[in-house]
Write a protein that binds this DNA or RNA. Sequence first.
RNA 1: GACAAGAUGGCCGAAGGGUGAAGGCAUCGGAUUGCAAAUCCGGUUUUUAUGAGUUCGAAUCUCAUUCUUGUCUCCA
Length: 490
Amino acid sequence: MNTAGELQIYNSLSGQKERFTPIHANRVGLYVCGPTLYSEPHMGNMRTFINFDMVYRYLLKLGYEVKYVRNITDAGHITNSAGEAVDSIGKAARLEQVQSLEIVYKYNVKFQELQRIYNMLPPSIEPTATGHIQEQIEIIEQILKNGFAYVVNGSVYFDVKAYSQQYNYGILSGRKIDELEEETRELNAQEEKRFFADFALWKKANADDMQIWRSPWGDGNPGWHIECTAMSTKYLGQTFDIHGGGMDLKFPHHEDEIAQSCGAMGCNPANVWMHANMLNVNGQKMSKSLGNFFLPKEIVEGSTSVFTKSYTPNVLRFFMMQAHYRSTLDFTQTALDAAEKGFTRLSDALQLLDKVPTAGQSSFYVNDLIASFYSAMNDDFNAPILVANLFEAVKRLNLINDGKDNITADDLALLKTEMHSFTYDVLGILPTGVQNNDSKLAPVMDLVLELRQLSRENKDWTTSDKIRDQLTAAGIVVKDGKDGVTWSAQ
RNA sequence: GACAAGAUGGCCGAAGGGUGAAGGCAUCGGAUUGCAAAUCCGGUUUUUAUGAGUUCGAAUCUCAUUCUUGUCUCCA
């Protein structure tokens, strides 16, 4: 493990950066709220998962043994603001005339494919809500036993008022229930609840529910928040290190998770709460209702209505890594084009690591450069600074290649190891530019470039330029360097 | 309305009391090149939303104002 500083993480619970100390030395428990699989995740959903993939990757890089749990919500959410029963998974299923688990399966297959496309490391486990009904029931029973919940007509509600006698409901979101009460009273005319802020732990089944389970309170289904409490407790323990999720889950979802854990087990579930910010399109949160969303696959295929061209998963990941996870990020074509060019510059320089000449002495401090990679990430996973520092290394490599800077073989080996590690292992970029080794294309390119070289020697610029232009049009970029011609395919 | 987070160059975005406000993209000049591309060197653009205040010193802290976004029981 590197000792260039200590990892600091911004904790939403305290509102400040804190030195990260795992509960068990060298081991980290990480829980992230995963997707609700009633439709295909859009790019905004992916940003959160990619950000936490980066967090996971850096924790691994630091040498931690990380247990990364990301749930899959495959049980319907229960109610909406009007108190009307809404089972979003069941609803989508009815529309498409299939069973609810069939639709969950369908979108889970797509989600797993997206994880591969965007080079996300698989979590240690992806538990499902439907697979943990018993655990959820047991926690609800515990909350009831402790007096922080009540049963009404086959449903169970969390008793926020009783809870507030002992605990601080609103500790995460900063909300104060007594202030909220008057304004929201009219909107929440749910007769079953004793108090407007109470939330369902178990909801009695409706006749048309597609998912129904048996429970001590009758047939029904679990409330939205209880699954995370059940699964994080089962796989990580009553209190674990880091709980992550999108900013929009802070309230009520995460607030209620805290209440459930305290209510059942008397302790906060997580020491550190991390929230990833939203992805915006033209200044607005990407969402289905606004119609400004696009699918992660569409943008790779170039079939969105928003952009006129496609971008590779690498470019998209790189683009996202140029913004801090706690900042909103605006997706625009000009920004993506800029990222694409910057990414090309970075990946070209990574190729140089194998080609650059070495010297007896280095003309700059390689160790300082490498230390800057660590200190960037140690500062609350500041990937944009890491990228900036990687570009410092890019500049050095280009200078070395031009004979204006020097590096020893040892330093180069070190730089290569760390640049590869931070680019590929931490940022999650997939290595590119290996097409030069393409067994079928390479001999053809050798021939074509030889012919071009002949015309160049004969000063037949028309022919040589035609070859170059045609290759460019075919997506193959030819570079005339000092020591010969190189090419790369996109 | 309540709560929360913001407002930084032509664009995307860092930094968050200490001289010259990262980095990428763009743009301009030079080097290199048959010409380009790539690369290198150098330059350009921000009175850090506005107005006050605290301080020896503020983009950074405080207050006010304007605006933006998010959440308020569907949400990554």
